[in-house]
Write a protein that binds this DNA or RNA. Structure first.
Lengths: 193, 193
DNA sequence: CGCGACGTTGATTTGCCTCAACGATTGTGG
DNA sequence: CCACAATCGTTGAGGCAAATCAACGTCGCG
């Protein structure tokens, strides 16, 4: 029995039993990707869950004027997917792309449903993953509608201190919802205090 | 066996069996509320799921300057709750309040968990409710970060045509994230074309 | 080594907010 | 059921946060 990082991850919530682990392992697809690799494109259906073992990915939308809007980052031990496209079997509006050379594990859509049917433990764990993502996103919505750009930046630094050292300010700006020029002004304002 | 509106609602997804219906019915709390009734306040833990039979509710946050930011509306056959507060057992940042005299059904937190444990059908249905709410919210985030106020307003009208006749423009403005004065300008701009 | 991404600065513009005021509607308490 | 109060929708003047466009030195990667 091989203990993959996903098994370890789930053991925090509802540890899988041996049968579930066997089924899971037989369905995992492992990938090593270089920088700037796309694993989801606008127009494609998101047909897999992705778990990050090592590296960093971003999920973003491209607006009308061609500008990128980052929705989510995923580093070690994070899940990333467009759940809307996944569950509704619709083409996605989003892109998922590596920001660093990355090592990922994927479970394809058919296999996810197969696992749901064959292991209620798996079912519960995935539900928790989605619930947590949802709760994170709700916090983000609340913050976006009730804070200034500067507050959002400071919150980002506090919440993801390790991330802010790894990714460029361009990526951070795109996540907190300002241009990189304006983030530069914010940063100056902060350090000059 | 009493067929409550919730049972009918679930029958769209994974119809409950008789046992599940009995358990569910025994745990439902029915309430009739007048206008402006609060069912959740900031600082309280959200300890129930609420299903709207008749009427209209809003969930909102109050910002630093005292202004309301609407996060979600719920009308007939919609669910509303602060899932973050509910699952993490944390005090909520949010308020839930009726916009009209309303008829609601509630399931208290302990009973939700009891139902999870006693009926996998219930478990699956609630998971779908949360997934759908999540997917809606993701669309909202995407739209907020990549559209102008006018586009957001037009999208709101298209998506919730019946709602926009029922609630005031003040509430709509608060939902799409502008002041009611500015919404007024947007509306003028649109009709003058 | 060279080229493209990065971070920064400045000038200008714009989308949206703030505050103030007004009549029209709606809701409610007596 | 009516009268008063509150909320609503709108308009205008003025202000600010953030975008846009342009330019430039620096750095890391291929």
């Amino acid at each position: 029995m091989i203990i993959t990082p996903i098994v370890t991850y789930f053991s925090k919530y509802w540890p899988l039993d041996e049968t579930a682990i066997e089924i899971l392992n037989s369905r995992i697809v492992e990938k090593k990707l270089k920088r700037k690799a796309l694993i989801l494109k606008e127009g494609q259906e998101c047909d897999h869950f992705t778990f990050v073992v090592k590296g960093c990915l971003k999920m973003y939308k491209i607006g009308k004027k061609g500008n990128q809007h980052n929705l989510q980052f995923a580093t070690e031990n994070n899940w990333i997917a467009d759940y809307g496209s996944f569950y509704n079997h619709e083409p996605s509006d989003l892109y998922i792309e590596t920001l660093e050379p990355s090592h990922i594990l994927q479970i394809r859509k058919n296999d996810v449903f197969h696992l749901y049917d064959n292991s209620s433990l798996f079912d519960r764990n995935i539900r928790i993953v989605i619930e947590n993502t949802f709760i994170e996103q709700q916090k983000r919505v609340l913050q976006t509608i009730s804070s200034t750009a500067e507050e959002r930046y400071l919150y980002f630094l506090k919440k993801y201190p390790n991330l802010s050292n790894r990714i460029s300010n361009v990526q951070i700006a795109s996540y907190i919802g300002v241009t990189s020029e304006f983030l530069s002004i914010i940063r100056k304002r902060i350090t000059s205090i």
